[in-house]
Write a protein that binds this DNA or RNA. Sequence first.
DNA 1: CGTCTATTTGAATGTACTCAAAAGCGGTGG
DNA 2: CCACCGCTTTTGAGTACATTCAAATAGACG
Lengths: 204, 204
Amino acid sequence: MTAIPSHNEHEIPERKLLLKNVQKHVSLTSDECETVLSYFSERPIRRKDKVILQGKPCRKFCFVEKGSLRAYHTNVEGKESTIMFAVEDWWITDMGAFLNQTLANLSLETLEDSLLFELEALKFQALLNELPKLERYFRILFQRAYVREQQRVLDAISMPLEDRYLRFLNKYPKIAAKVTQKQIASYLGVTPEFLSMVKNKNSS
Amino acid sequence: MTAIPSHNEHEIPERKLLLKNVQKHVSLTSDECETVLSYFSERPIRRKDKVILQGKPCRKFCFVEKGSLRAYHTNVEGKESTIMFAVEDWWITDMGAFLNQTLANLSLETLEDSLLFELEALKFQALLNELPKLERYFRILFQRAYVREQQRVLDAISMPLEDRYLRFLNKYPKIAAKVTQKQIASYLGVTPEFLSMVKNKNSS
DNA sequence: CGTCTATTTGAATGTACTCAAAAGCGGTGG
DNA sequence: CCACCGCTTTTGAGTACATTCAAATAGACG
């Protein structure tokens, strides 16, 4: 029999992006760090695997410890719209469905082999009750997410595609390097054909 | 000389939408209610007055006790894009500028005579420090705002204008009743001419 | 009542999509 | 290592969506 690698009791907390991320906004004792981690389950997951399926319950709020994911909606005609990408050190889920515990409106799939820290909806509540100081952490998180999405709405309704594309490249260079142009097109809300045209129109 | 109406020391807290709104998510003692109110300044304001000016500092986070407002961005060509409307019982500001204390990217104007409760940026921090339980309130507020904006992005990039228009009417009937069609067009990101056409195309 | 703005209508133009096909690229199996 | 396969990207023609500009009509407000 081979030895089964056991959970390492002496992990260096600094190596966990999750804890570092939380501690950007609230300080935690090492006891509190352990408490936080105890609410999460660590999950290695392979490229192109689905974490959430549109139409199924959405139970998890995911922190990306390693790797990258894409959240997208598929409409009745089968057209995909990408809602967000997440790389290392980001949170991702179908927040609407997660909060209200309704069926997911989005699917979530990995872009590469990844490592997630998953938080169940009930445990999310329980964690906030046990460590109320985390309310501040999540308040700041959602506040920023709100500002970002609002800016994205403004971009979508007020800027021409070329500007939006360049802005995306500029704002999220790490993401741009990992995803296909088709996925960027679906994030910007245009067809891949049109994005290709706009990109290449200057080089005649 | 006419008598100057003095602040009423015995106001019925239930009459304040602000306190009722907070208490939807966290319970407050009557002392805490007074504390909350002490951080705000009450401001009556007339129709079409500006609360925030694009390009100027953004100092206030506004709760609409009465009336309604519109937040919009004006681009270099002078085209306006409406970011949000707020009616009674809503919060509104240029959140990005408010948070980072940068110059406003949006203007905020009333649609009618209104009554605002204004919270200064520094007082926002101080209030959260004095009453940490409000972190939860704002966490929930921003969490929902995030979900709404994300849904709006999805609508904007995936649905035809007619559907988006009908959805707007259906989702915000109170707002739809108060604003012009031109303002709705600028919220949806199209010209008023085109919105008019789409609305009337079925009645040939 | 008069003025100012919003709404509607229409023609011409530009933006973005569909469908189809060719070219490029990456991964997989032989 | 190479050849094939599937998917992405590009290109192009034709069509639909959305804009600009202009002018007429309708409403709102003082």
